[in-house]
Each structure stands twice: as structure tokens, then as C-alpha cells.
């Protein structure tokens, strides 16, 4: 039973990070329909930005986080303005956009490798004293992370469902043409989507790094695929569903250790994803499905 709770705690912690990945991916994908693989690059960038501000420039952690958020939102917006929009305006196929995004991902990932080296780097974070609650080890970050993730999700829910800007954002997901007819610029909303979606990444990176993992150039692809997975599980067009799905993935991944060795974790999660796509393509909270027409 102790093992179960330990795994559950670990799962909720990792799930919080996954929820932020999912939220970030979904915020960008829902209105733009861009497979933003370069987001993996932005995530790596977020990690190294935190490292540069916190360790090289010796700024306090909060200041490093604020600066990293500013940097990644600018980078995200840059992706939209300098890469995706020009490509889409040229009328290239969907797949070409994906390829360009993969190309940018490779460039960012390896630039970081070139500058900072391939090995993991750590931030200046005070060592945490774990609590021992009836045989279960709990690190403070494991409590903080879910709270942060929930707070961000709540904030976005408020923005999406209680403000005019949120209404416009949701309209851009379901009916961009109508929005355009009403004189509201969809391309501006897309730009915001990229900026806000990217702004979440340094937070996710910091939460994960605080749990003891370092900053390394290879973490990008996992982050973006997990984010995509959370979004599809939660249901496309539903950013909040992506957050919930992120938590579910984290918990399932960790509890699966009960059944199979840790090495199988990732395969299990993707196996479940495949099953969900086959059985319920709408995801848990989604609506529209793009079916094969046979």
C-alpha cells in the first residue's frame, strides 16, 4: 500500500508537468492547427534560459523564471510570425509546415547542445528536505507542482470562459471565418496563442528541474510528444481537457510500475494512447472528430 501511495504521489507530480505540456501544446494547436514540434526546441530553450539567468548571471530563481518566460513567449511568437505564417501564406501543404517545424526543432536542440554541451546541467536550487508520511517520501516540490499546474489551469479557464479575449480565442478554435467576418483578426489571436502557450513552458521546465532532473538538450521531443498525447487524450479543441489528461497520463505511467518494470512506462502510455485513439477518437472532453471516411 505504501508503494501505491508513493507511486501515486510521483504520478501526480509528473502529471502536473505533463498537464502543463498538454496545456501549452493545446493552446497553440487548437486555434492554429499547427503541429508545433519546434515547441520541443522552445522547451529546451526554456531550460537553458533558466540555467543561464540563474547560474551564469546568478539571478534569483524567480527573476530567472520571469526572464525565461519573456524569452520563450517571444520565441514562440517568433515561430508564428517568421516560420508558420509565411509558410501558410504561401499555401504549402500541411505536411510541409510539420517538416519546417521539425527542422526548427532540430536547429534549436542542437544549437543548445553546441553552446552548452550535451551533458546535463543543474540550477542553483536549495536542497529540499523530504517529508516522511507513514512510509511515503514526499518532496515539497511534489506538492507545489500540482498546485502550480492547477493554478495555471484555473487562470486559463477564467481567461477562456470569463473574458472577451477568451471568447474570441474559443471562437478562433471553432469558427475562425465568422470571427474574421466580424472584424476580429484571427492572426493576432494565433500570435497570442503561440506567446501564451510558450510562456507556460519555463514553468513546466522549472517544476521538473526542481525535482532533481537537470537541463539537457534531449528533453524536447518527449515534452512535445507528451503534450500532443495529453491534448489528443483530452480532446482536440479542449485546452482544459489536455491539462486533465496530462495528470491522468502521469498517474497511469507511474502506477503501471505495479504491472511491468519501469523501462516499459513509455510504451504503456503510448499503447493506451493508441487504444484511446481507436476506441474514442474524440478524446475525453472533445467534440469534433476528423474521421477517415471509410
Amino acid at each position: 500500500m505504501e508503494l501505491f501511495f508513493q507511486l501515486l504521489i510521483n504520478g501526480v507530480y509528473v502529471g502536473a508537468v505533463y498537464a502543463l505540456y498538454g496545456l501549452s501544446f493545446a493552446l497553440i494547436f487548437a486555434p492554429t492547427k499547427v503541429w508545433h514540434f519546434a515547441q520541443g526546441g522552445i522547451y529546451v530553450l526554456a531550460g537553458y534560459a533558466l540555467y543561464s539567468f540563474n547560474v551564469i548571471l546568478a539571478l534569483p530563481l524567480w527573476a530567472a523564471l520571469v526572464l525565461a518566460i519573456a524569452l520563450t513567449s517571444a520565441a514562440g511568437a517568433g515561430c508564428e510570425r517568421l516560420l508558420y505564417r509565411p509558410l501558410v501564406n504561401r499555401g504549402v501543404s500541411h505536411m510541409v509546415v510539420v517538416m519546417a517545424s521539425l527542422g526548427l526543432f532540430v536547429v534549436i536542440e542542437n544549437s543548445m547542445d553546441l553552446v552548452f554541451g550535451p551533458s546535463g546541467l543543474s540550477l542553483r536550487i536549495d536542497p529540499q528536505t523530504p517529508w516522511l508520511v507513514s512510509g511515503v517520501v514526499i518532496m515539497p516540490i511534489q506538492i507545489i507542482a500540482p498546485m502550480v499546474a492547477l493554478a495555471i489551469t484555473g487562470l486559463l479557464a477564467l481567461m477562456l470562459y470569463r473574458t472577451m479575449a477568451g471568447r474570441e480565442f474559443r471562437a478562433a478554435i471553432t469558427n475562425p471565418e465568422l470571427l474574421e467576418i466580424n472584424g476580429i483578426s484571427v492572426s493576432r489571436i494565433k500570435l497570442y496563442a503561440f506567446a501564451i502557450g510558450s510562456a507556460i513552458l519555463p514553468v513546466a521546465a522549472l517544476l521538473l528541474i526542481s525535482g532533481g532532473s537537470g537541463v539537457s538538450p534531449t528533453v524536447g521531443i518527449t515534452a512535445v510528444l507528451t503534450g500532443a498525447m495529453a491534448m489528443f487524450l483530452g480532446g482536440v479543441d479542449s485546452p482544459l481537457g489536455a491539462a486533465v489528461a496530462g495528470f491522468i497520463i502521469g498517474i497511469v505511467e507511474n502506477l503501471s510500475v505495479f504491472v511491468l518494470p519501469t523501462a516499459w512506462q513509455v510504451s504503456i502510455t503510448y499503447g493506451i494512447l493508441l487504444l484511446v485513439i481507436m476506441i474514442r477518437p474524440t478524446g475525453l472532453f472533445g467534440r469534433a472528430v476528423q474521421k477517415a471516411t471509410v
Partner: peptide, 18 residues
């Protein structure tokens, strides 16, 4: 056979990772 487009991209990723 079930899904196309974006779903197929992700599903194929799933196959790859598994």
C-alpha cells in the same frame, strides 16, 4: 482505417514509440 489527418500523425507516433 479509423482516423485520418492529425490523429493519424499522432497514432503513427504511438506505433513508433511502442
Amino acid at each position: 482505417l479509423r482516423v485520418s489527418g492529425d490523429y493519424l500523425v499522432l497514432a503513427s507516433f504511438g506505433v513508433q514509440v511502442v
